[in-house]
Amino acid sequence: MHRTRLSGYLFILPALLIFVLFLIYPLLHTIYLSLTEWAGFDLSKITFVGFRNFKLILPDWIFWKALRNTMIFVFGTTVFLNLFGLALALFLNNELRITRLVRTLIFIPVLLSPVIVGVMWSRIFDPFGALNQILDEMGIIDTPVFWLGDRRIALWSIVGATVWQWVGYDMILYLTGLQQIPIELYEAAKIDGANNWHLFRHITLPLLKGIATMVILLNLIGGVRIFDIVYVMTRGGPNHNTEVLGTHLYTVAFWFNKMGYASVIAVIILVISLLFAYFRNRIMRER
């Protein structure tokens, strides 16, 4: 018995070592670095400054803009992803060959790197790009729309490209949920004279609540991590109107070399992520 216990730990050891070395230690180090000041190049010149970096947050208007934009992005994408994802799942919930093909096609963008999605859509959204061409051809616009250059539109264009990429993912998750609902429930209700709307309202919706909560939280948590697509499409512009926490941290840390202050932003991103994760865990435990 003793021998097997030792080998049990040996099986876990490699994973644990990598985990402690490259995640736990850096995580604690982030918190420490947020209390220091250094230029990012000379590692020997890291000086402890206490909470001074945290005071820099208040006057940093770009940070507040980035926080606001991140939240708009997070909730914007979550709303549209769930609406369209659920609708597609409901409409494509059968095993006809054509339906299966449509589902596969809608899933394709999920496979792409957000960088590629950003590259494709920044060309489509370009003033001379495909979208303006089409709208012009259809007579809807007569001057080009600056999809990524107009400060009121840019963030929503990025939301659009993101929804385009991930709607197939939410659709599959909702389909998993739909397929867990026993067919007998619908059959019994139909015998009792329920119409389609009744079936949806009183069987489908209530039984999807669990899965919907999971999908929504998953989208919220994923949204906070947004970085790639903004980096590629706008670099946070115009005038920081698409700046998000990730891109702001990146600029502060790796362009301006203010590593201490950037670590403060890292801690804030971490806290927001943990809050969402905390809600997720609590809800899952209740179920």
Binding site: L27, T30, G246, L270
Partner: peptide
């Protein structure tokens, strides 16, 4: 843990 929270360390 989002990767960006630990990139600096």
């Amino acid at each position: 843990v989002p990767p960006i929270a630990v990139v600096i360390p």
